[in-house]
Design a protein around this nucleic acid. Structure first.
Length: 473
RNA sequence: GGCUGAGUGGCAGAGUGGUUAUGCAGCGGCCUGCAAAGCCGUGUACAGCGGUUCGAUUCCGCUCUCAGCCUCCA
């Protein structure tokens, strides 16, 4: 079998993955700053790295997956003042909301979820080391800054040189800094702001240092994989490397993974542009699994354009897979089938979920053919399909649950009422009263219920009325 | 200005130096009372211009277009 290859942002190449400790993988992902609801961009990070972690486990690795929560920063303080809500209350509230969104998307909780505010001691001791090593200094305003010039390899991750960068491009140059690209490690508190005691007075940690401290604390000075969104490449991850390597004297991370953005109309979805959809909003119209499928239907490094059309397609695609699994009892196939081999090959190629999913569809096609011809063989194929779905976190419901659930559908008719209608129609069919039978079927269709006759039986599934209406006739 | 990445059939989206991606939509057929689902068949896609090659969508160069980063951001 082919070996797992991962695209490393540090080298801009796909590299064969070799863990530091045989059989173990240490994975750190930058998590949310919890002052608002998750948007679809956050959903992408959560889903992508959930799949990374699941697939590594599928390959037999013992995975330690850490994803932090940033629960103190300027935006949190601003929001808590605005909402007149204690900042710990606010962050607790949105942490809970995030966990709900994750569950909706079938994202498994990481193994550890450290909080920045629980890591203040580690942060302070790391800053002390940096000052002792002359990588950091206390500014005239008592803020502590990291000196980018003190770190020889600064810019290695983002591929830029200090000389090439435009200081003051967006933000006014801060005169407390020796170099405009120096960044804050410890920020002095203004009156009324939440703060912790430190050798430099009351204050709070800078954004970048918390991740260095938490990752090092949970996974050691040197670990396997660090992930996050593209936009964190610079400055956040660049700064993490500078801090951690200067503080520990060791290499920080072997493999850096960055996922592409979600876009709306070919423009980055972001809070600052205000063009974002929250997971909560989208879940009103679509099931979590549909969002998940949408995310996985393109490669994690590609841009992902969000649209209702895309979500509708994801729904149709999932319907096809679940339909294939109807009326078949999946059993574990102990032989390595060609599907599984090709699935693993796709996933081994930098987690190519889009390609992996295409193998699932080929498998579904064969399953559909075998269901009537050779049920035993069909059961094995169905087992393969579910085996592939596992590390992708898909197809974890029963076909009936998915196809008949009203979650994300806009039809309101009850299951009982549907059964009543179906029975009436069966009677009409028996009477060869085709007009009545068709009338009942059409009426149900208008309510988002599609009937399917199979011999003397009738099965049904729920679809979106809105989707039906927008489909070209 | 510096640095990345991308341009594939109606849409979405993989991939490859010569052979069907896959899904949705379309068209023809089978099945069906009629449908739906499913199955079978069906599309002369690879931004443009040069170059390398027996052969390029795939490699190289240039051009055009788009997106991202250059201390808010996943």
């Amino acid at each position: 079998m082919s070996a797992l290859k991962i695209h490393n942002t540090l080298t801009k190449q796909k590299e064969t993955f070799v863990p530091i400790n045989k059989g173990e993988v240490s994975l750190y992902v930058c998590g949310m700053t919890v002052y608002d609801f998750c948007h679809i961009g956050h959903a992408r990070v959560m889903v992508v790295f959930d799949v990374v972690s699941r697939y590594l486990k599928y390959l037999g690795y013992n995975v330690k997956y850490v994803r932090n929560i940033t629960d103190i920063d300027d935006k949190i303080i601003a929001r808590s003042v605005e909402a007149k809500e204690d900042f710990t209350q606010l962050t607790k509230r949105f942490t809970d909301e995030m966990h709900q969104d994750e569950a909706s998307l079938n994202v498994l909780p990481p193994d550890l979820e450290p909080l920045a505010t629980d890591s203040i001691d580690n942060i302070i001791s790391m800053i002390e080391k940096l000052i002792a090593n002359n990588n950091a200094y206390v500014g005239p305003n008592n803020d502590v800054y990291y000196s980018v010039e003190s770190f020889e390899n600064y810019g290695q991750l983002s591929g830029r040189k200090l000389d090439d960068m435009n200081a003051g491009e967006r933000v006014d140059v801060d005169n407390n800094k020796r170099n405009p690209f120096d960044f804050v490690l410890w920020k002095s508190a203004k009156p009324e702001e939440p703060s912790w005691t430190s050798p430099w007075g009351q204050g709070r940690p800078g954004w970048h240092i918390e991740c260095s401290a938490m990752a090092t604390c949970c996974l050691g000075n040197h670990f396997d994989i660090h992930g996050g969104g593209m936009d964190l490449q610079f400055p956040h991850h660049e700064n993490e490397i500078a801090q951690s390597e200067a503080a520990t004297g060791e290499r920080y991370v072997n493999t850096w993974m960055h996922n592409g953005f979600v876009r709306i109309d070919d423009e980055k979805m972001s809070k600052s542009l205000g063009n974002f959809f929250t997971v909560r909003d989208v879940l009103k119209k679509y099931r979590g699994e549909e969002i998940r499928f949408f995310v996985l239907s393109s490669h994690y490094r590609s841009p992902l354009n969000y649209s209702d059309e895309q979500l509708n397609e994801s729904r149709s695609a999932l319907e096809r897979l679940y339909t294939a699994l109807r009326d078949v009892k999946p059993i574990q196939n102990n032989l390595q089938s060609d599907y599984i081999r090709r699935f693993e090959e796709a996933m081994n190629d930098d987690f190519n979920s889009a390609k992996a999913i295409s193998v699932m569809f080929e498998c579904a096609n064969e399953l559909n053919k075998l269901k009537s011809l050779n049920p035993e063989q069909a059961s094995l194929i169905a087992g393969d399909l579910l085996k592939m779905a596992g590390p992708l976190g898909l197809l974890n419901q029963s076909p009936e649950e998915f196809l008949q659930s009203s979650a994300g559908a806009d039809s309101v008719i009850s299951n009982d009422e549907i059964d009543v209608q179906i029975n009436q129609r069966l009677q009409a069919k028996e009477d060869k009263n085709w007009a009545l039978a068709d009338q009942i079927r059409d009426a149900l269709k208008e309510q988002g219920i599609i009937l399917e006759d199979k011999g003397a039986e009738t099965t049904w599934r729920r679809v979106n009325v809105a989707t039906l209406a927008t489909q070209p006739q």
